[in-house]
Amino acid sequence: MIGLTVNARAVEAAVEPRTHLADFLREGLDLTGTHLGCEHGVCGACTVLLDDMPARSCITYAVACDGARVTTIEGLDEDEIAIELRAAFQREHAVQCGYCTPAMLISARDLVLRLSEADECGIRIALSGNLCRCTGYVGIVRAVKSVIDARRKRDLSSIPGAGRTTLGPVGSGNRAVSSNAAAVNAAAHQSEIQPEGTGTLAIPDFRPALVLQDQFTVAYPPDRVFEMFGDVAAIAACLPGAALGAAPTPERVEGMIRVKLGPISAIFRGSARIERDSTNLSGRIVGIGSDQRSRSSTQGEIRYHLVPIERGAGTRVDLSIGYSLTGMLAQIAREGLVRDLASRLTKDFARNLDRHLAGIPRDDAASTQSLNGISLLFGLLRKRAREICQRVLDRRY
C-alpha cells in the first residue's frame, strides 16, 4: 500500500513493487496525459513533477513515491505559467503530433521559473532532455522564450533553483516519507542504513539473481573455524579488498570492498547483517552496497556450513553465494566471469584464513589490495585456453 498526493488529491492504492510511476498514473488513475516513449528515461515524454521537480516517471518506481506529491499535465489546468505556455505553444506553432507536448510543457514550466532571462542557448540545453520528432524545436524554443520575456517585463522575477533549497535526487525535498518509501530508499541508499534499534530499517532479505556453490578445506577443527567466523574484523582482514567502516557487532557490520574491472574502479560501501547457528555450525551474511562512481548497486548473501573431515581434525567449508547487481558493472559482469571471480576470491579467502588460524602475521599490502578483474580475466583466459588445448589433444589421440 502506498499513499501519495496526485494533482492535489490524496490517493491510496496497492501496487506491485515493480510498477513504475508512469504505469500507475496511466493505468491505475487514468491520467493518460503522461505519455510513454522510450521507457528508458531518455526521451522525456513521461516527465511529471515529483515534489515540484521534473522527474522521469517511466524509471521511477511508484512505491518510491510513497508520501510524495505528484503533479501531471492534468494537474496544471489552472496553473498560471502552464496557461501562458499553452497559449504560446499554439501561437508559435510549437505542436504537431502532440505526443511530446505534455512533458515538454512541464519541463518548460520549470525553465520559466528558473531562468532569469530568455537565453535561447540556455533554453535549448535545458530542453535537450525532451525529444520531439516533429517540430524541429524552433517553435518550442520561441514559445518558451516569449513567455520568459513577457513575465520578466511584468517584473515577475525568476526563482533561483525553482525554489529548491537542497540538492539531491528528485523527491528528496519530501518530508512525509512513509514506511514503504523508506524501504525502497534503504535498499537504494544503504549508506544511510543504521543498526537496528536506531529507528531505521533492518537490511532486507532478497531473491538472488545468481547463486554460486563452492567449498574449501582448512586443517583446523570446525569449532575453532566457527569461532573465528564470529570475529568479524578477522574475517574482513581475510577478504581481499575489504575494509571495515566502523566497529562491528556480532550481528552487524558496515564497511566497503574495492573492485577493479578493467577501466572501472568501484568501491562498494554498505552494510551486512550476520546470522549464526552454533548447533549445526552454519551461518548467513546478507548485505547491500553501492558504488557512487559507477552508479552500481548490489545485494549479496553468503551461506556457510562447516563440515568436520579427517575425524574432526579438519574442516570443509561449504559455501552458497548469491547476488544481484544493477548499474554499469552489471553490463560487464557476465555469469562465466563472475563464477571465476568468485572462485578466485574463495581461494584467496581460504589461503588468508589458513594463515590467520596458523598465527602467521597478516600481509597488509595483500589485505588492502583491490579485487583486480584484469588479472582474474587473464587467469580465466589461460584456463579456457588450457581446456581448449586439452580437448584438441583428446580428439587427436
Rank of each mutant, 00 (worst) to 15 (best):
D291T: 03
S290V: 12
V232H: 11
A266Y: 00
A247F: 02
I302T: 12
L244A: 01
R273Y: 06
G241D: 01
E301I: 15
R284G: 01
Q292N: 13
I264F: 11
G312N: 08
D231K: 12
H305Y: 02
A233I: 08
G283D: 06
E251I: 02
L306Q: 04
E254R: 13
D277F: 07
T298I: 15
T315W: 07
G300Y: 12
R273Q: 13
Q292L: 14
Y304V: 05
I309P: 10
L261Q: 10
I257H: 03
R293G: 02
D291K: 05
G314W: 13
R273D: 15
A233N: 06
G270Q: 10
E251P: 05
A243T: 01
T298C: 14
P250E: 07
G262Y: 13
E301D: 07
S296I: 03
R258I: 04
I288E: 15
G287V: 00
V232L: 14
G314Y: 12
I235C: 11
S271C: 12
A242D: 09
P263Y: 05
P263E: 04
P240A: 02
S265E: 03
I235Q: 03
L244W: 04
A234M: 02
V253L: 14
G312V: 06
G270S: 08
R311T: 09
T249L: 13
K260L: 06
A236I: 09
G283N: 01
M256H: 12
A243N: 02
G270C: 10
C238F: 02
S297R: 15
P240Q: 07
L261S: 09
G289C: 09
G255R: 02
I264K: 11
P248M: 01
A234I: 12
I264T: 11
S265G: 00
A233Y: 00
R269E: 15
S271P: 10
P263R: 02
S296K: 03
E275V: 08
I285Y: 15
E251H: 12
I285W: 13
G312A: 09
A242Q: 08
A233R: 14
G241H: 02
L306F: 03
G255K: 00
R276K: 11
A247V: 12
A266L: 07
S290K: 08
G270I: 04
A272S: 05
V232G: 03
E275N: 10
R269L: 10
A247Q: 13
V232D: 07
E310C: 00
R276Y: 04
K260T: 12
D231G: 03
G289D: 05
S278N: 10
V259P: 04
I264R: 08
K260P: 01
L244R: 05
I309R: 11
I264L: 07
L244E: 07
Q292M: 13
E251W: 06
P240C: 09
D277L: 01
G312K: 13
R284H: 04
G289W: 07
M256W: 10
A236E: 06
R311L: 06
A242L: 12
Y304W: 13
V232Q: 06
I235V: 15
D291M: 10
A242M: 12
V286C: 11
R269D: 13
M256C: 07
M256K: 10
G241A: 00
E251S: 11
